[in-house]
Write a protein that binds this DNA or RNA. Structure first.
Ligand SMILES: [Mn+2]
Ligand SMILES: [Mn+2]
Ligand SMILES: [Zn+2]
Ligand SMILES: [Zn+2]
Lengths: 137, 137
DNA sequence: ATATTAATGCAAATTAGTTGCATTATAACA
DNA sequence: TGTTATAATGCAACTAATTTGCATTAATAT
């Protein structure tokens, strides 16, 4: 499938390869963040055998292009997800590893307070919740 | 220096060693989280030459004993700090790496909202801010 | 003093991620 | 439809952070 992101990259002179389009396609159609190794496994399962190095390099490339974002979840492997979605955070089950997106209305107040009390030029924040999902309880 | 934590550990049958007391002492007297390697360097500087493996093992031990806590800051090395302090978060300068503690009044609302919208049994959360400190601006 | 075993040091393994380099393949164009 | 430039790839080697095995050392109870 040829997506907008892919067309945009082509217009910038980058090539459309099987690795690129399948990684992009997978991230676009997944609602939770994925790790390099999980992407690797999923692609292998659907018959796209890409070297893990290529996955890391492609993720690095998509990060530079601001098409995806790095999601650090506690001390686990780095996760990645497509950027441009509604600002949200993550809730991870420490038992099965499943991840849910979370949109928090009350976050605005927190960010305001943060800007008020700090003299730093704050550029970003990371917020994640950890617990046990209903299936694992 | 012999601290309460150390006495407590002794009472539990664990030994008081130079590595243990100096790591504990350092973490107790530092207001920002430290990494294994930073602890290693600081101890070396003050004349306590402990193997890095011992530092990792001691940090693991202190975690098990719930005397310290793991602080994951984005995709940098793991940090550790003494537990039991007022609940707070961290603000890291992405230029010089310095870390500040942050106490947020408005966090309560966020956590309430979180518990309302989620069916997970939430056990903990991680929140950190990143930006440029006044010195680095 | 001696015995028990917690703690340590060192080397080797592991895990996540990165880099060098030779090869392959996409896409522009002759 | 070739030919070409170079983006993308694969593989092996590397790095950084952390962990593990194992033999040795040392803290503490007796
Ligand atoms: Mn947010
Ligand atoms: Mn908090
Ligand atoms: Zn679960
Ligand atoms: Zn700074």
């Amino acid at each position: 499938m040829i997506t907008n992101h892919l067309l945009l990259l082509q217009k910038k002179g980058f090539r459309m390869t099987q690795a690129r389009s399948s990684i992009l396609n997978l991230l676009e159609n997944t609602d939770h963040p994925l790790t390099a190794t999980s992407i690797h496994k999923i692609l292998k399962r659907i018959g796209v055998s890409t070297n893990i190095t290529t996955i890391y390099r492609e993720l690095e490339f998509l990060l530079e292009q601001k098409i995806i974002e790095k999601i650090p979840l506690f001390d686990t492997e780095l996760h990645y997800e497509i950027s441009g979605r509604t600002h949200h955070h993550h809730l991870m089950c420490t038992s099965c590893g499943s991840i849910q997106n979370i949109v928090l209305q009350s976050e605005k107040g927190l960010l305001e307070e943060m800007h008020n009390i700090s003299t730093y030029d704050i550029r970003r924040h990371s917020l994640a919740f950890f617990g046990t999902c209903p299936d694992c309880t």
